[in-house]
Every structure is written in structure tokens, then in C-alpha cells.
Design a binder for these strands. Structure first.
Lengths: 140, 140
DNA sequence: TTTGACTCTGCACTATGGTGCAGGGTGGAG
DNA sequence: CTCCACCCTGCACCATAGTGCAGAGTCAAA
């Protein structure tokens, strides 16, 4: 089995050296084996693990959730655990997409209304931001 | 003109007291007038300004961008400046929406494929994360 | 006058996901 | 043997948008 130093494992996985140490500190990677010199030693499995982390991150999982996924994997967790986690993530994404879309549409409307000419007095974008409904802060 | 202390202006605008001081430090609010006691004094214009910030934030503008918007406003900027800023924001939103949608679809596909039953060996979600294309990190 | 609510400054801390650096030790090529 | 690249630890710091707190001073009602 190939043994890699931290620089190699980081390069193979496409992350920074400090990131590898950071993941170890955060419990996303097990504590590395050490050479007599104190150098951390890695295997190709660790490259896979790092890549898993990288890819899960691009799917929007937080490091916390990735740690959970990795624990499930190590503990021979069940498919239903993983599916639940993924479904929660999916629901988060859908909620966030809904919010962002609403914001986008509101902003697009303002931009469409603004001629882009003249001074700021009466500019639909500025006025639009000013004119939004404000829930219940005028009371007291 | 009504004079408000920081607690009142914060409550009227629907933000925290510390947030008001924070915005002053960050240049989003001008330095407040002071009473002899040293208390900050505000007007209803400041309430409007704070609300403007709050609302712009819900549209996804960063504090930095809001500061720019407020500077434009103060400097009698032109409508085209504001429109450009808003269009940039809109383009950001569209890009982000595209990315999130792609991620959502990828995750939804994995979730659909996973029966939610059995051990993790061969779980489509875990495998799916493992199997994503990795751009050009194997080289070197 | 006393009490309680409010405000002041300055500083530390939160979460997230790392990055950078100082001051050392190690490994291998020339 | 020297040189450089690499690695170690521990710590501070980045952005973002605030929040919290200590210790002191102020304001207003009872």
C-alpha cells in the first residue's frame, strides 16, 4: 500500500495541506499514522475520503453533515439513515431555491421598471427598496 | 423633528441596538449626533435609513453593496449607477440559482435512486458522491 | 433619593471553512 | 555538507454580520 505524506495526499485530493490538518482536527479524517519524524502518513483511502468530502461539499453538505455521513459509513449505518440525511438536504435546497427565486423576481421587477436615466429622485429601485412591506415594527 | 435614543431607533427599525452601533462603525450610518451625556441621538430619517438597509439585505445585497447604494444616494448618484448595481446583483442571483438548481437535481436523482433499505454497501447516494467527475486533480 | 431601565466604550466571541505565519525539525539531491 | 523543499506545532487571522458582556455613567419615575 502506498504511503503518502500530507503534501502528496493534499495534492492528489485537490485540497490544501492546511485543509487536511484542519479536517483532522475537526474529526473528518481519523488521526493520521505518524512516521518516526512525526510526519503524518496517508494511504490512497485517505485520498478517497478527502475527495468524498470535497464532492459532498459541492453538493452543499456542511462539514458537520459530511462528518455525519462519514460516521454512518464507518459505523455500517443503514441506507435509510443516509437517505434521511439527503432528503433533509434536499428540502433545505428547495426552501432556499424558493426564497432566492422570490427575491430574484422582486429585484427583476425593480430593474425592469428603472429607465436607468436621470437622477435618483424617484428611481424605482431605490423607492422599491424603501417601499417594501415591513412586518410589524412600527408598533410600540 | 423627533429625537430618538438608540434603543428607540433600533426598535422602530426592527434591528438590535448593537447592530445600530455596528452599522455606524461600518459606515452604513453617519456618526450620530450626541447629547451632552454622550448618548447617540437619531431622527426619523435614521429609522428610514435603517429600514432601507434591512430591506436591501432581504434582497440579498451585502452590507458592502448597501453602503455603495447609500453613498450613491448621498452623492446624488445617477439612476444608471443604481441600475448597474441592481443588474449585477440580479446576475449574481441568476448564477447562484442555476448552480443551486443543478445541485438540487443531482441530489434529487440520488435520493430517487436510493431504496432507503439495506446496508450502506452499494447505497446510490454514497456511491453517487464518490462517483462524481473530478476535474483534473489526478495529474502530477 | 433610590431604583431600574437605558446608554456608553472597548473588547471578546459566535459560526463557517478554512488560510497564513513563525520558528523550528526532517529528507533527499548534488 | 549544504541546500532546499517539505513537514511539525501552535497560534493568529480572513470574511460576514453581527452578539454579548463588563464596568461605568445617565435618565426618569415613584
Amino acid at each position: 500500500m502506498q504511503t503518502l505524506t500530507i503534501g502528496k495526499v493534499a495534492k492528489q485530493a485537490g485540497v490544501g495541506i492546511d485543509t487536511v490538518r484542519f479536517y483532522e482536527r475537526e474529526g473528518l479524517l481519523p488521526e493520521a499514522r505518524r512516521a518516526e519524524s512525526g510526519y503524518r502518513l496517508y494511504s490512497l483511502d485517505d485520498v478517497d475520503r478527502l475527495r468524498f468530502i470535497r464532492r459532498a461539499k459541492t453538493l452543499g453538505f456542511s462539514l458537520e453533515e459530511i462528518a455525519e455521513l462519514l460516521r454512518l459509513n464507518a459505523a455500517e449505518g443503514s441506507r435509510s439513515d443516509v437517505k434521511h440525511l439527503a432528503q433533509r438536504r434536499l428540502a433545505d435546497l428547495d426552501r432556499k431555491l424558493g426564497e432566492l427565486t422570490a427575491i430574484r423576481d422582486a429585484l427583476a421587477t425593480l430593474v425592469r421598471r428603472c429607465s436607468g436615466q436621470g437622477s435618483l429622485k424617484g428611481c424605482p429601485i431605490i423607492e422599491g427598496v424603501l417601499a417594501q412591506d415591513t412586518p410589524s415594527y412600527r408598533e410600540h
